[in-house]
Amino acid sequence: MKLIYTGGILPFIILFICGCNSNPSGRINRQASVGNNASLPENPLEMTPMAVSLQAEAKTMSTLYGNSIASKRLNEVANYAPGSVVYLVTWKEKADSEWFGARIPDRVATIERVSIDGKGQKSYTFFKGPAWQEGLLLKGDREAIILSIPIATSP
């Protein structure tokens, strides 16, 4: 009895050892990373993260990023100033394989850009990600929706 059980563990130990050596350079969430093939003028992931949101029905999660002018709103209560550029990156969610109880970004669904020029004129651009599907985004004035996302504030 004892022997069978101890013997049964061995293959698992061997599997386990192989499992850790297979990727010596560490893990990266490549499919959620934004590549520069989407004709984007800049990489939104390089900007300052300002807010996060979840869309339960579409099973997506988003992060709002801002340039240095937009991200002043992390510290002051004010409207977006001229020169602000914000991006809303929306990913499909997936279960976190490391923690039952968490969901993390999967493939990129959409990237939206809103900029405010020197005269206060706003413009909106839409980029389709590999996980884009019809009906993923809340309908309406996307520009206004994005600019009214509540900032994730910290003390």
């Binding site: 300052t48 993260p49 949101s53 992060t63 969610e93 109880g101 968490a102 969901r103 993390i104």
Partner: peptide, 20 residues
Amino acid sequence: YRNWKAISSTDRFDNGTIRI
């Protein structure tokens, strides 16, 4: 740290939080 980059975000349905 708020000027650093976001390397991930998590929707923690186990305790009702959202994280960067």
